[in-house]
Amino acid sequence: MSIATHTARTVTRSVATGKSKEKTPGSLIFLLALWFSLFFGILVLVALIIDTAIAGAPRFDMNLLTNYSSIVRPETSGFRAGILGSLWLMLFTAIMAVPLGIAAALYLEEFADSTTRWNRFVEVNLQNLAAVPAIVYGLLAVAVMALIGFQESGIVLGGALALALLILPVIIITTREAVRAVPQEIRQGSLALGATVWQTTWRQTLPSAVPGIATGTILGLSRAIGEAAPLVVVGLAGSVLFDPEGVMSRITALPMQIYSLTSQSREELQQAASAAIIVLLVMILGLNALAILIRNKFQRSW
Rank of each mutant, 00 (worst) to 15 (best):
I173R: 11
V142Y: 12
L165K: 05
Q271D: 09
A47Q: 11
K23D: 08
L254N: 13
P207M: 04
R59S: 06
L293V: 15
T12I: 07
T175D: 00
L108R: 05
E185W: 09
V179F: 02
L193Y: 00
P230N: 06
A181N: 12
G138I: 01
I294E: 03
A97D: 02
A57T: 13
A131G: 15
R59N: 06
A224R: 08
N119Y: 10
L287R: 11
E22F: 08
L285M: 04
L38E: 04
A103R: 14
F121M: 11
K23A: 06
L43N: 13
A53G: 11
T200K: 05
V170T: 11
A192G: 11
S27I: 11
N296G: 02
R223I: 05
M90Y: 06
G85E: 08
E227R: 08
S14N: 09
L126W: 01
V232D: 01
L231S: 10
I171M: 07
A97F: 14
A103W: 07
D51Q: 12
M283L: 14
T76L: 14
A47V: 08
E22L: 10
V247G: 06
V142I: 11
G78T: 00
A112T: 09
S14M: 09
A131H: 07
I251Y: 06
P99H: 12
M248W: 10
L45Q: 12
I218V: 15
R9W: 00
W302Y: 14
T175A: 11
T52Y: 05
L126N: 05
E227P: 12
R250I: 14
M96A: 15
A81R: 13
M256L: 15
E177V: 07
G154F: 03
N63V: 04
K21H: 11
V197C: 05
A94N: 01
S37G: 09
Y259G: 03
A97L: 05
Y107P: 05
G18T: 13
S86K: 03
Q271W: 03
D243M: 15
A141P: 13
E22T: 11
G212L: 07
D243Y: 12
S77N: 06
A57F: 14
A195K: 10
T5A: 15
L231A: 06
T66I: 08
Q257L: 03
P230C: 07
M145R: 06
V233C: 02
L231M: 12
F121S: 12
G154V: 14
A160G: 01
E22I: 10
D113F: 11
L108W: 01
Q199P: 07
W198H: 08
W198Q: 09
